[in-house]
Write a protein that binds this DNA or RNA. Structure first.
Length: 644
RNA sequence: GCUGACGUAGCUCAGUCGGUAGAGCACCUGCAUGGUAAGCAGGAGGUCCCCGGUUCGAUCCCGGGCGUCAGCUCCA
């Protein structure tokens, strides 16, 4: 028979061949499985009709197969060490795999080493995997007898006509849909990382199992890199760096609300200033609206029905109030304050004020998940035919912002969900407008069918940071419903009242969250224009104190954030302190510099820029700040110290 | 919200088998007046998360609460 292999052309095979034979014939190394159409198949499966794609660890699907088998190795090792342990589910994840297990006695992190050692044995034994199709009755009987009630439960939950398969390796057999590696010996590097609680099927009324996490790689080197990135992420953790750099803090009595210290507020204000500078030319109006409203408003907006669990509610003089989690209802009231003409559209209303959401206590996470936040939020009221141009303009804002931070973005278009409000004609129009705007500039995007909000389709933006981590950041949402609920109208050219469409958009999103992401992206070493302290002046000795003060004053008057460190310490000590605070420039002033009217400039990271005339230094900095220059290079490792 | 672990100086952590506690860094003072990542010496700093219980005595043991962390769930 003849099959088509992606990238390799057509291949002739003997009848009865398996995919493993095909791979062997081609001599392609490191193939873990194959994809035929939308199915992923093991190498021991017989060759079928259809174009074949070879999967290695470089493919997401290949990694999936690899780590799924690793989870079976984990289960096998656990059953050897704890024969009474009951297995639930054990899938691969993006970063590794886990297995949910009910142990006879709860295990702790200290028990992982022994399990890991047993896993190494299973790998070394290099068991081939075998796939068996079994009848429902057979499967139920087998897992009943094996003392695996969770597996029995899973089988019972399968549809009547489902194909049930088991996978066997050595003495271990597991209920599993597959697919898997052909042999356990391919797993060259694995490590168990963590054990945590998890409910069976996510049901918090059900039994609490223990989820054992691990990861696996085809080589030790790849695993090393993985753990290096994890260490690097830990080093950059904004929850640690933020307080260390004196940017913000949290207090027990205000969980989920940040204290912005002076330096952190500089960052915050710089971002808001950036946002304003981009939006003002586009005709945005900035407003400030109330932050507590009577429940009546939340009834109208639909928040009482859909968002009340996430709101702080209160009562005063017998009246119920809610603290605003979003600006949109207030902006609708603002729109309705006057009779609006089509001439005013699109009307762009921006607000940076505080928003409060009652996030559950267990979900709070530094600045990334807070209860009190500020967004670079805006609502655009428009005539439906303006949708395309508004979206395009807003895409431009997203581009500018993420280019400035050197973060690539990926666009997701979420289309109509099964349960939705509004005419399909409106949905057609809105989805078409979003697609047209994206197509206009030939942008790549991913469609997430059915993932839109119930009130309209949306664009979500995912940014990638310096460590390759992905963060959902900006959003552009089309909304037909709120204008209807608030009975908003404008008078059109023909004198008739029409209902506007509303676009909700946030470019940085929650500024709290965004700053959290930036701290980690830049490892706390912010580009010059954002740095809370941009220059620190270091007089060599007491004799230059006054000169340093004069230069600092001139810099500050020129709009540069400069300060003097004239502490009674040696220059090396103060240089080190400035480096640890990740200040972009240090300017040293000694006898020579005072006489020449210069400063000796050192860039963050240790680069010596030599002596520069004081006036030139100020002008250079002013230019770089004004242009939001992204240096000094901050995306690489900026610790620069103690690393070979 | 649920499960588990944790909560000692500003930070990182030690310690007390129940008798009210210590180091390094940071901070302050003095000496040293310094040239690109830690000069020397001294000092100050603690409600051992909070409330209750057991005990002659609780930072330590027990219960409850709050918070943080890791997950789950939720949200998107």
């Amino acid at each position: 028979m003849r099959v088509e292999v992606v990238g390799k052309g057509a291949v002739d095979l003997a009848g009865g061949s398996r995919y493993g034979d095909l791979v062997a014939q081609l001599g392609v190394p490191d193939v873990l499985a194959v994809a035929v159409g939308d199915r992923v198949l093991e190498l021991f499966r017989p060759v079928e009709e259809g174009q074949v794609r070879l999967l290695t660890f470089a493919d997401a699907q290949g990694r999936q197969v690899f780590r799924h088998t690793a989870s079976h190795v984990l289960a096998q090792a656990v059953k050897r060490l704890y024969p009474k342990a009951q297995l639930a589910i054990g899938p691969a994840t993006d970063e590794g795999f886990f297995y949910d297990i009910l142990f006879p006695e709860p295990i702790g992190p200290g028990d992982l080493a022994a399990i890991e050692a047993e896993m190494a044995k299973v790998v070394a034994e290099d068991h081939p995997l075998r796939r068996d199709e079994v009848s429902r009755a057979q499967a139920l009987a087998d897992f009943e007898r094996a003392g695996e009630p969770f597996k029995v439960h899973l089988i019972e939950a399968l549809p009547e006509d489902a194909l049930i398969t088991t996978y066997n390796q050595g003495e271990f057999t597991d209920l599993c849909r597959g697919p898997h590696l052909p042999r356990t010996g391919l797993i060259k590097a694995l490590r168990l990382t963590n054990v945590a609680g998890a409910y069976f099927r996510g049901d918090d009324q059900g039994p609490m199992l223990q989820r054992v996490y691990g990861t696996a790689f085809p080589s030790a080197a790849e695993m090393e890199r993985h753990f290096f990135l994890i260490e690097e992420a830990k080093r950059r953790d904004h929850r640690k760096l933020g307080p260390e750099l004196d940017l913000f803090s949290f207090h027990d009595v205000a969980p989920g609300f940040a204290f912005w210290h002076a330096k952190g507020l500089i960052l915050y204000e710089a971002l808001v200033g950036f946002s304003r500078s981009l939006q003002q030319p586009l005709g945005y109006q900035e407003v400030s609206t109330p932050w507590i409203f009577k429940t009546e408003l939340w009834e109208t907006s639909g928040h009482s029905a859909h968002f009340t669990d996430n709101m702080f509610l209160m009562e005063s003089e017998g009246e119920a109030f809610g603290v605003k989690p979003m600006n949109c209802p207030g902006h609708c009231l603002l729109f309705a304050e006057a009779t609006r003409s089509y001439r005013e559209l699109p009307l762009k209303i921006a607000e940076y004020g505080p928003l409060t959401r009652r996030e559950r206590s267990g979900t709070l996470h530094g600045l990334l998940r807070v209860r009190g936040m500020h967004q670079d939020d805006a609502h655009i009221f428009l005539a439906s035919e303006q949708l395309g141009s508004v979206i395009e303009e807003t895409l431009g804002l997203v581009d500018t912002v993420y280019a400035t931070f050197q973060m690539p973005i990926e666009i997701h278009l979420s289309t109509r969900p099964p349960s939705r409000m509004g005419d399909d004609a409106l949905w057609d129009q809105a989805e078409a407008a979003l697609e047209a705007a994206l197509g206009e500039e030939r942008r790549a995007y991913v469609v997430d069918p059915g993932e839109g909000a119930f009130y309209g389709p949306k664009l979500d933006f995912v940014a990638t940071d310096a460590l390759g981590r992905r963060w959902q950041v900006a959003t552009i949402q089309v909304d037909f419903q709120l204008p209807i609920r608030f009975e908003l109208h404008y008078v059109d050219r023909d004198g008739k009242q029409k209902t506007p469409v509303m676009v909700h958009r946030a470019i940085m999103g929650s500024l709290e969250r965004f700053i959290g992401v930036l701290v980690e992206h830049f490892a706390g070493a912010f580009p010059l224009w954002l740095a809370p302290v941009q220059v620190r002046l270091l007089p060599i000795s007491e004799a230059e104190r006054q000169a340093a003060g004069t230069v600092a004053k001139a810099l500050r008057e020129g709009g540069v954030r400069a300060e003097v460190d004239d502490r009674n310490e040696k220059i090396g000590y103060r240089i080190r302190a400035a480096e640890k605070e990740k200040i972009p420039y240090v300017a040293v002033i000694g006898q020579r510099e005072v006489e020449a009217g210069t400063v000796a400039v050192r860039e963050r990271g240790g680069k010596d820029l030599g002596t520069i005339a004081q006036g030139t230094f100020t002008r250079d900095l002013q230019e770089r700040i004004a242009s939001r220059w992204s240096g000094p290079s901050q995306l690489a490792d900026t610790d620069g110290h103690g690393r070979a």
